[in-house]
């Protein structure tokens, strides 16, 4: 029972500096298994930096980050172990342009997990069906729409059977009509009990899916609450101002 409640991600007074610029200041955050967290905030507030520190895309400069029992240090074995547990979805999809969709989904399975080809392809097809584009398997990324590419990217991350999914503004680069197809896939995933940390400005998604919404500003966690409280009774003036600005239209 205790493993259920102990956090799968734990950040203790984490800081991140880029030269003189403090991107993260004294961030404390615990995420329990199965929890769905949405992080929002103005641009440059450190949201992306925060989730990129969780799988060591960025190296935090102070504090402690522990993911699934592995502390993130310079030890490459811990970084590998952490990355094996975490899938990441990027704003710009980052599909490998010289590989077909199917190969995008199998390459890491085969290289990292040493999964046999047939099995890797079966896993890939399974997740392509989950994101509802199995018919695109033989195409190259450039032949797909942005929404389709992002769904492939989500499927690619899922093929590694991660326990945690990080989403870094997954819909920000998409045309409006393609946003919902990606959000639907994410809602699906949330329904399966996946631990999710999403940086997004999709407040509808936050409201319906998140267990907790976090507002960041200037590298700090300013406020966190369940969506009901967060949207209707924000405690902090900066949160309220931000919400007024993005919910106005």
């Amino acid at each position: 029972m205790s493993t259920q409640t102990s956090p799968i991600i734990r950040l203790v007074s984490v800081g991140k500096r880029f030269g003189d610029f403090e991107a993260l200041v004294d961030v404390d955050l615990e995420v329990r298994p199965g929890e769905r967290i949405v992080i929002c905030g103005p641009s440059g507030s450190g949201k992306s930096t925060l989730i990129r520190c969780i799988n060591r895309m960025e190296k935090h400069t102070s504090g402690t980050i522990v993911v699934n029992g592995h502390e993130l240090t310079d030890d490459l074995r811990d970084i590998d172990a952490v990355r094996r547990e975490i899938g990441m979805v990027f704003q710009s999809f980052n599909l490998f342009p010289h590989m077909t969709v199917l190969r995008n989904l199998t390459i890491a399975q085969r290289l990292v997990r040493k999964t046999p080809k047939a099995e890797a392809e079966a896993v890939a097809m399974h997740f392509l069906e989950r994101v509802r584009i199995p018919e695109q398997a033989a195409k190259y990324p450039a032949q797909l729409s942005g929404g389709q590419q992002q769904r492939v990217a989500i499927a690619r991350a899922l093929c590694m059977k991660p326990r945690i999914m990080l989403f870094d503004e997954p819909t920000s680069a998409l045309d409006p009509e393609m946003i919902s197809e990606v959000l639907e896939v994410m809602v699906d995933l949330a329904g399966d009990g996946m631990t999710m940390v999403c940086v997004t400005h999709e407040m509808g998604f936050a409201r319906s899916v998140a267990d907790r919404v976090i507002f960041m500003d200037r590298g700090r966690l300013v406020e966190q609450a369940d969506p009901e409280t967060f949207f209707t009774r924000p405690q902090n003036e900066r949160t309220a101002l931000f919400l007024r600005q993005i919910l106005r239209h």
């Binding site: 590998d80 990355r83 710009s92 980052n94 490998f96 590694m160």
Partner: peptide, 20 residues
């Protein structure tokens, strides 16, 4: 970003160089 995607999938730096 492509190399980051590779890293996030757990690919080693050698794998990333050879395949990406």
């Amino acid at each position: 970003g492509l190399l980051e995607a590779g890293a996030a999938l757990g690919m080693s730096s050698t794998h990333r160089f050879v395949y990406i």
